[in-house]
Structure formats: C-alpha cells, structure tokens
Design a binder for these strands. Structure first.
Length: 465
DNA sequence: TCTGGGGTCCTAGGACCC
DNA sequence: TCTGGGGTCCTAGGACCC
C-alpha cells in the first residue's frame, strides 16, 4: 500500500447505453437496454432509466423486456462507436500518466505517482479528479464517469463504485479499513457467487468478518492463491502494480444459436466461419497460437471444452477449423448444441514466411517464434505492423433482407439522410432519422430491401467546426 | 423465450523427464 | 524386487470480471 492516494480508477457510467443516448437524441432521458436482442440474448448495459424498472446487466433480454415499459429501446451493440469513445477517454488518462491500465472499454486504472508533477495531497487529487471528469464529459459529448482515488487498486476501484453515477470519492490515506470493513465481501474483486456462498457458510458477510478469519481457514475454504488474496485484501494490503499493456493471451469467438443445432455439416460450417474470424484477428495482432480449443454448450446448458496443442503455432483458419472440426466429431452433438466456440491460445509473436524482413528485431528465435511471456509489453495490442500481409476479404454472406438490419444499427438513406434502425420485421424496417448533433428526428418505415438504404459507419458526435 | 461474448487466472491429474 | 521427488507440459474444468 502506498503512502499517498496515487491510484485512480475510472468507471464510465452505463457506458454502452450512454453512447447510444449521445448518438440517438430521441433516447435521451428514456430507458435504453444494450445487449443481445435475439431470443437468447442477455443485457450488457442498461441505462439508469432502465435500471429504475429493474433491468440489470447479465439479465436475459426477455426478462428485461418484461420489466421495462413500452417505448424502451432494446439495441444491439455498436462496438466500433464504443471503442472510438473509449479511445478518446484513454487518451485523456494518458495525459495524466504514462501508466494507464485499461481493464475494459469503460474502465481503467491510472498511476498518478508515475505521472510526474501531480500534487498528491488529498486536496490535490480531489481537484485532479474533478477536472478529469469535466474533460471526459466534454470530450465524449456527454458520457460521464465515476472516479475513485486511493492508495491501491483495491481502494480506488471500490471508491469509484461508492458514489455512482458521476461520482468522485477520494479515500484519505489511513482511512482504508474504515471504508472497507463495513462493506459486504461481495464488493471485493474475486468474490463471486460461489466464493460468497462458501464464505457465508462460515459466517462471513462483511469485509470485517473476513478480516477475522485466519489465513489457514481462507486457504482451506477457497484454495491457495485465492485464500491468500482474500486475506490480504481484507486488510487493505494490495500492492498490485498498474500494468499498461498486459498483452493478449488468447483469441476466441463463440456463438449461441437461436435454436439448438445437431447437424455436423451445419456445425462444421459454423466452425469454419468462427475459425476465419479467429485467424483474421490473430493476423491483425501479428500472433499465432499452438492450442486450439473447441467450446460447446449442450441443450441442457452443460458446458465443456476440448483442446489440442499443435506442434507449431498457427494463424491459419483452415488448420484451426480442421482441428476444431475433429474435436467436435470426437465430442459429439447428441441432444443438440446451443453454443459453439473456437479459440486459440498459447500465443507467440510469429514470423510467418517472409512476413518480417531480415532486419526485423522481433524475429529473433531460429524458428521465428518469440514467446509472448516476458515480452508481453512489446506485443502489439490492436494494430497490425505495417509489414503484415493484407487480410483477405471475408466472403459476403447473403442473408434474407429482413435479417440484414438490427436495432440500433447506423444506416444512411440516399434521400432521407443518416439514421438508425428502430425495429424490423415482415420485410419492413423502421428507421429514425437523427444523429448526435440533430434534434430528435422523424421515424419512417421502409421496405427492408429498399435499395436507397445502406449500413453506415457510426456518426461523429462532435459538432461541425 | 431463463441463462452472451470476450477474456483472465487457478487448480488438479496424468504423462513424461531427469 | 512396497511403491521418491521435482519440474514442465497438456488437458479439462471452474470461478470470476466487464
């Protein structure tokens, strides 16, 4: 634990829903649910208006529809838009310090002590927190964030959660246990339903209860690593560093089907398309992996994985697919599968053929492989190096016209302009024509195969200069 | 029409090696 | 000729996080 409150945690409020409300003026102040919109979808984010009706993250979308009133917007995710906004926020954090650790699109830790020049007094970091929140709201066009600042990741994270939304909590050094001990154990990271139940059975409900348990008891209850971690966290002992780039360890794609599938040919084609996506993402990150994992979830929700480790790392979609197909044939499909997933792990930076020129320093091992571990900080996160081979275009999947559109999708109409899909069905699609810088716009129902209607990129939320 | 999709980390057993 | 002891790799599963 540090002597000064120099760890900042930022959590953007109802992030996906907030981006939707920013880009869709007619949804501001109204309940919005973002997530899977199919029959088996779950909620990723509910706006605060939707939470008032009981919609929650991880709830089935069907349940959220039951709870929310008519007029609630149920939208599929627009991840390109979320990423763009997230990048803007992460950029602001990096102005504070080079040590920024994104935990997801909407969450990050910042090491203010590594920033240089910050006044790390309680008054100093409080002013910094207020200024940061203001800049975020301004730069994102209205997305707010909650900030916690304290002497460790643990304290900062719990602080950001104490006063949501749009909160700022600075925990004065020395006051950590006062804040921590009254809280339920479930507020500690790593205490999920299973651990909470086990702790509850031995009379532990608050962090203070947890702190009264011996290390031996906690290890017996939850395992070696987990027990040691709980023992320390209950005492506010947390020296986990802020790590700016953790590096990718696996790449996977999975899909829950609208109806359970049994046919091996159909499932084989699903595997092919998932392997293509995984292979493409591996190439984009300039990595390859040796272990191919097939994940399947049966009709009764039992979930299992089967994996095979190859002699050489690969990013080849065909090799990934044939390996996964073999694993599926061995595992069987009896009773029907509700989910299939394909993943690749055991990643290394992999110089493939003449992908890297001879003077490329990253291609150091004789077989062209550099282990990811240890060199993780050098692993490119998103962008492919300019020397990467171009990625072949995905084959275009032709679907029935009414399946092309999904709620929330950005579209453009040749005459009516930019808008987004409100709903679809029966060969019709309903579009609201508005954008982040317009007033709430009109709704039109069009033919789903209207040749003037096209999918579009996310709109720019900044007003024209 | 209960229960997503992308991940990380840990544990445990067996194989294999020295 | 009553069975050691690590260390590492592989596989499978589980818990957890956002």
């Amino acid at each position: 634990m540090r002597r000064e409150a120099s760890v900042l945690h930022l959590d953007l409020d109802a992030f996906f829903a907030a981006v939707e409300q920013r880009d869709k003026p007619s949804l501001r102040g109204r309940p919005v649910v973002v997530g899977g919109v199919g029959g088996r979808g779950v909620v990723a984010t509910a706006s605060y208006e939707a939470r008032a009706y009981g919609a929650r993250s991880a709830m089935s979308t069907a349940e959220a529809r039951r709870r929310c009133p008519a007029g609630t917007a149920f939208l599929g995710g627009r991840f390109a838009a979320y990423r763009r906004t997230s990048d803007v926020v992460m950029g602001l954090l990096r102005e504070l310090s080079p040590l920024v650790e994104p935990a997801s699109l909407d969450e990050a830790y910042v090491d203010l002590a590594a920033g240089g020049g910050h006044d790390l007094s309680v008054d100093g970091v409080t002013a910094l927190g207020h200024a940061l929140k203001e800049r975020i709201t301004e730069a994102t066009g209205g997305v707010s964030g909650s900030v916690g600042i304290g002497t460790s990741k643990l304290i900062a994270k719990i602080g950001s959660d104490l006063d949501k939304p749009d909160g700022l909590v600075v925990v004065r050094p020395g006051n950590e246990l006062d804040m921590l001990h009254p809280l339920p154990v479930t507020r500690l990271g790593g205490v999920g339903p299973a651990t909470a139940e086990r702790l509850h059975q031995v009379g532990v409900t608050t962090v203070a209860d947890l702190a009264a348990k011996s290390l031996t008891d906690l290890v017996a209850l939850t395992g070696r690593a987990h027990g040691a971690s709980l023992y320390a966290l209950a005492r506010a002992e947390d020296d986990r560093p802020i790590v700016p780039d953790r590096g990718v360890k696996s790449v996977s794609h999975e899909e829950t089907f609208e109806r359970d599938l049994t046919d091996l040919d159909v499932l084989g084609r699903e595997i092919d398309s998932m392997a293509a996506r995984v292979g493409q993402r591996l190439r984009t990150s300039a990595v390859s992996g040796r272990t191919v994992t097939l994940k399947l979830r049966r009709y009764d929700f039992t979930t299992l994985t089967r994996s095979q480790t190859l002699p050489q790392p690969t990013d080849d979609p065909r090799l990934i697919a044939t390996t996964a197909r073999r694993l599926l044939a061995d595992a069987g499909t009896s009773g029907g599968l509700r989910l299939l997933g394909v993943g690749v792990s055991g990643l290394s930076v992999y110089a493939q053929g003449d992908l890297f020129s001879v003077d490329d320093e990253t291609a150091e091992a004789p077989d062209g492989r550099t282990p990811v571990d240890g060199a993780a900080g050098d692993l490119p996160r998103l962008e492919a190096p300019s020397s990467a081979t171009p990625i072949p275009a995905q084959p275009v999947v032709t679907a029935p016209a009414e399946r092309l559109w999904w709620p929330g999708q950005d579209v453009a109409h040749d005459e009516l302009g930019a808008g987004w899909v409100w709903g679809r069905g029966l060969s019709r699609v309903t579009v609201r024509f508005e954008g982040p810088t317009t007033a709430p716009g009109p709704v039109r129902t069009l033919a789903a195969d209207d040749p003037a209607l096209h999918p579009a990129d996310p709109p720019d939320w900044r007003p024209p200069v």
